[in-house]
Computed example of a mutant assay.
Amino acid sequence: MEAGRRQISVGDVLNETFSIYGQNFGALIGGAIVVFVLVGIASGLLQNSGGLVLGTLALIVELVGRAIFVGFVVRLVEDVRDGRRDHTVGDLFSSASDAIVPLIGFGILFGIGVGIGFILLVIPGLFLLTMWSVGAPAIVVEKEGVIGAFGRSWNLVRGDGWRVFAVLLVVFLIGLAVSAVLLAIGNSIGNGASLVAGIVAAVITAPIYAIAVSALFFDLGGGGQGASAQASTATAPPAA
């Protein structure tokens, strides 16, 4: 068994996910706003300008933004698992910066592989989505390469696939419910409010999945924390 690995409990992972979210709400939402709003504006301007080159640049901007945010959240979860956040938001973004390129590469291959799996009667896509779910944290924390992250994730998840899948499913349903409510409110208001509601939904829900897969990574023995790490129940105020 992986050193530091502990039995995955769907309830425990979800409790830790929302505990970390609540205690670090300002940092997470602030980071999401900076990344997704600014990236969304830049990407939108490039796409509206038209042309294949600018469209490709818009896609690259989006990929970079998502990679930055994932790296930031992984570092934040790693930091708070001792009971408090010791590093500032700037420190966390900076410490994840060297993982941006491999995270982008992993994200592209992950999307292609899972997408092909969904085309093949859905089940293979769900299987790959589960088995590769903790590849991004492996890149950030353990400095795995793009290809190595797939194998590392597979080895960590193996034996706990159903529990990991259950966590991912619940997180997906929660995000879907939040987005549906906000979009319904936006549609009822009209006058472009649905666009704003979509952005707000993305900002609010983006940290949930990233925190959950980070918690899973450490619980499965990644980074050598596993059972030795305590779920975040900070009583001291986090760093600014």
Rank of each mutant, 00 (worst) to 15 (best):
R5T: 06
R6P: 00
I8H: 02
I8M: 00
V13E: 06
L14Y: 08
F18Q: 12
S19C: 01
S19V: 01
I20F: 10
Y21K: 03
G22K: 13
N24M: 09
F25I: 14
F25E: 11
A32K: 04
V34E: 03
V34K: 05
V35N: 02
G40S: 06
I41Q: 09
I41E: 08
G44Q: 08
Q47S: 14
N48P: 01
S49F: 06
S49G: 15
G51L: 00
V53I: 12
V53K: 01
L54A: 10
T56E: 05
A58K: 09
L59V: 07
I60G: 13
R66M: 08
A67D: 03
I68Q: 05
V70I: 14
F72K: 08
R75C: 02
D79L: 12
D79M: 11
D79S: 07
V80W: 01
R81P: 09
R81S: 11
G83V: 07
H87W: 03
G90L: 04
D91C: 02
D91R: 05
L92M: 04
L92S: 03
L92V: 04
F93M: 11
S94R: 11
A96M: 07
S97H: 02
D98R: 14
L109T: 12
F110E: 10
I112L: 11
G113T: 10
I123M: 09
G125Y: 06
F127Q: 00
T130R: 09
M131P: 05
S133H: 04
V134L: 11
V134F: 13
G135Q: 11
P137N: 12
K143T: 14
G145N: 09
V146D: 07
I147A: 15
G151V: 09
N155Y: 04
L156C: 01
V157T: 06
I174T: 09
I174A: 00
I174Q: 09
G175K: 11
A180N: 01
G186K: 09
N187H: 05
S194D: 12
I199D: 01
I199H: 05
V200W: 00
A202C: 00
T205M: 03
P207H: 10
I208A: 06
I208K: 04
I208F: 15
Y209W: 01
I211W: 07
S214Q: 08
L216G: 12
G224K: 04
G224M: 05
Q225I: 09
Q225A: 13
A229S: 15
S232G: 08
S232H: 14
S232N: 15
S232K: 11
T233M: 15
T233F: 15
A234T: 05
T235A: 15
A239Y: 03
A239I: 08
A240Q: 15
